[in-house]
Amino acid sequence: MAALRADYATGTGERRELRLADGSRVWLNTGTALQVRYQDSMRSLALLAGEILIETAPDAQGRPFFVQTRFGRLQALGTRFTVRLTDQQTRLDVFDGAVEILTQYGGQRRIEAGGAARFDDRALTPLDGADDMRAAWSKGILLADNMPLGDLLAELSRYRRGHINVAPAVASLKVMGVYPTDDTDQALAMLAQTLPIHIHHSLPWWITVDAR
C-alpha cells in the first residue's frame, strides 16, 4: 500500500494540512499518500496516491520545487496548484503562477495560472481551464456547477466507505450547489431534496440512486 511508504497519509474522508520546512503549505485530500524529500539542491514531493493542494513559498536557498508522480515530474514556478493521481493519469490545475510538466516519456509543457492539463505514460493533454472544484475540497466542500450527477457522486464516493450505484436514468442530471465532504449523508440528503431522485440505503456500505 502507498500509505506504508509515505511520510504523510490520509484515510477515507480525511484531510490534512502540512506546513513544510521552507514555509510552503500542502493540503492532503482523502486517500492520499505523500513523501517529502528536502535536500540541499532541491525541494521534492512524491505523490504516491490521491490529491494535494500546494502553495509554494520562496526559498532562501533558491532551491527548485518539484512534485513527482508515476507519470512525470512537475516544477512549481512560484505558484498555487493541485495535483491528482489516479491509476490512469495525473491531473494538474494551476491557480497562481505556473507549473512546468515533464512527463516520463519526455513530453514537456508549461501551464500558466488558470490552466490545467492531464498526462499519462503516452500523452500530455492541455485542458480548457483550472477547475475551482480541484481546490474547494481543502475547505471540506465539493462545488458543482452544472455537473452531471454521476460525476458528482463519483467524487462524493471518495469521501465515504462503500459503494454508490447510480442508475443510468439519473446519471446525466445536472447539479449545482455546494456539498459537504465531511458529512456525505447530508450531501446525499441535499441532492434528494433538489433532484427527482430516490436514495436507497440497501446496506450501510451500499447505496443506490435512481429516479423518484
Results as ranks from 00 to 15, higher is better:
114 G>S: 08
124 L>R: 04
159 Y>C: 11
182 D>W: 05
139 K>P: 06
131 D>H: 06
186 Q>A: 15
140 G>C: 05
146 N>W: 01
189 A>E: 10
157 S>N: 15
178 V>K: 12
181 T>Y: 07
122 R>G: 14
81 F>H: 05
139 K>D: 14
166 V>F: 09
92 L>R: 03
170 V>A: 04
85 L>A: 09
173 L>W: 07
148 P>H: 07
87 D>S: 14
154 A>W: 03
166 V>A: 10
172 S>I: 09
89 Q>G: 08
93 D>E: 03
151 D>G: 12
126 P>Y: 01
88 Q>H: 11
120 D>C: 10
192 A>H: 00
129 G>C: 11
156 L>I: 10
105 Y>T: 15
63 R>N: 04
85 L>H: 08
142 L>Q: 09
91 R>V: 13
69 T>E: 03
91 R>T: 15
88 Q>C: 02
133 M>A: 13
106 G>H: 02
126 P>C: 01
186 Q>Y: 07
71 F>H: 10
72 G>E: 00
70 R>S: 13
188 L>A: 00
125 T>K: 08
76 A>Q: 00
147 M>G: 05
81 F>R: 09
92 L>P: 11
168 P>T: 00
176 M>K: 10
171 A>S: 15
105 Y>K: 15
182 D>N: 14
110 R>G: 12
136 A>Y: 01
96 D>A: 14
74 L>D: 02
77 L>D: 07
137 W>S: 12
181 T>L: 13
69 T>H: 07
81 F>W: 04
186 Q>K: 14
81 F>D: 00
86 T>A: 04
71 F>W: 04
189 A>Q: 12
101 I>P: 02
178 V>T: 10
115 G>N: 05
90 T>R: 10
185 D>H: 06
108 Q>T: 15
87 D>P: 14
79 T>H: 05
185 D>S: 10
171 A>C: 07
186 Q>V: 14
124 L>K: 06
118 R>P: 02
160 R>S: 02
92 L>H: 08
97 G>S: 08
128 D>N: 14
65 F>P: 06
175 V>H: 05
80 R>T: 12
81 F>Q: 02
163 H>A: 12
160 R>Q: 12
197 I>Q: 05
130 A>Q: 06
187 A>K: 04
73 R>W: 00
62 G>H: 09
78 G>L: 06
75 Q>I: 10
130 A>E: 03
105 Y>D: 15
170 V>T: 02
190 M>S: 09
119 F>W: 15
74 L>F: 13
95 F>W: 10
98 A>R: 03
149 L>S: 02
137 W>K: 00
97 G>R: 01
89 Q>W: 04
138 S>F: 05
65 F>D: 02
126 P>M: 03
192 A>W: 02
165 N>G: 04
194 T>E: 02
161 R>P: 03
85 L>C: 09
192 A>M: 00
121 D>K: 12
148 P>I: 02
65 F>M: 00
134 R>N: 14
149 L>Q: 04
140 G>Y: 03
122 R>K: 13
87 D>L: 11
181 T>D: 11
160 R>C: 03
83 V>Q: 11
71 F>I: 03
125 T>Q: 14
66 F>N: 09
117 A>I: 07
122 R>P: 08
62 G>E: 01
130 A>P: 01
